[in-house]
């Protein structure tokens, strides 16, 4: 019970956008002119913008991790390993809250945006399509806020990440989180959710696709391109 309260409190304290606000604004979409303005941006500028928004979201995930009971008791190496491998995955899970499945739009820079707004990202368009599909499939599960909180913690605390120094300790923390999640699901009669969650490999594949697209961008542009990207983003993905 204590662990559940801690997961929920950590999640609420570090949530970037409140669910009520996202719901209230879910039909506030970009106008045709605004979409065209985004489409006219250079590929470099659009990448930088997206990297900026991803980095902001990741900073919230780091704060969430720091508040999770047991996370800061892991060795520093393992804290970094878990965040490096899992932060982007958590951001993708959180995206289902900021996604309107009825018109396939996502909250981006103040309004809801369709996939076409990201056209200037160039070849990364496939990646955008895959991310939208993932958000759509997660939205279909209609997860509550406490469920998203636990899913975030479980994506992060994963004992099978490579390069962990103390996987047993991570595994023990994960087991406690799993128990807390099961109790929550039992209490809310949502046990079926566990069988309907997308396979973990799907999140991993999306993250690999993101890094591959970034590498392709770097191959096509001078190294100075990345200088304009947020330092934390470069550290994690470049």
């Amino acid at each position: 019970e204590q662990l559940t309260q801690n997961v929920l409190k950590s999640y609420h304290e570090t949530c970037q956008l409140r669910a009520e606000d996202l719901q209230r604004r879910r039909w506030d979409t970009f106008s045709r002119e605004e979409i065209c303005a985004y489409q006219k941006k250079s590929m470099e500028e659009m990448w930088q913008r997206c990297a900026g928004r991803i980095t902001e979201a990741i900073q919230h995930v780091v704060e969430f991790a720091k508040r999770l009971h047991g996370f800061m008791e892991l060795c520093q190496n393992d804290q970094i390993v878990l965040l490096k491998a899992g932060a982007m995955e958590v951001v993708l899970v959180h995206m289902c809250r900021a996604f309107n499945a009825d018109n396939r739009t996502v909250f981006f820079e103040g309004k809801y945006a369709s996939a076409e707004l990201f056209r200037s990202l160039g070849r990364a368009e496939d990646l955008i399509g895959s991310i939208f599909d993932f958000a759509q499939s997660l939205c279909a599960l209609q997860c509550s806020e406490p469920e998203v909180a636990f899913l975030s913690a479980l994506v992060l605390v994963n004992a099978s990440r490579p390069w962990l120094q103390e996987p047993v300790k991570v595994s023990r923390l994960r087991r406690r989180l799993e128990l807390g999640f099961q109790l929550l699901l039992r209490r809310t009669r949502r046990e079926g959710l566990l069988d309907r969650l997308p396979p973990q490999g799907r999140l991993r594949a999306l993250c690999s696709q993101h890094v591959e697209q970034l590498q392709a961008l770097r191959r096509r542009h001078p190294p100075a391109l990345l200088d304009a990207f947020p330092p934390l983003y470069r550290e994690l993905f470049a």
Binding site: K66, R67, Q76, Q79, I80, L83, W163, L232, E235
Partner: peptide
């Protein structure tokens, strides 16, 4: 690993903000 991830390491070291 901490050396290669100085920013992340620093964020983790800072108190809850």
């Amino acid at each position: 690993l901490q050396e290669k991830h100085r920013i992340l390491h620093k964020l983790l070291q800072n108190g809850n903000s």
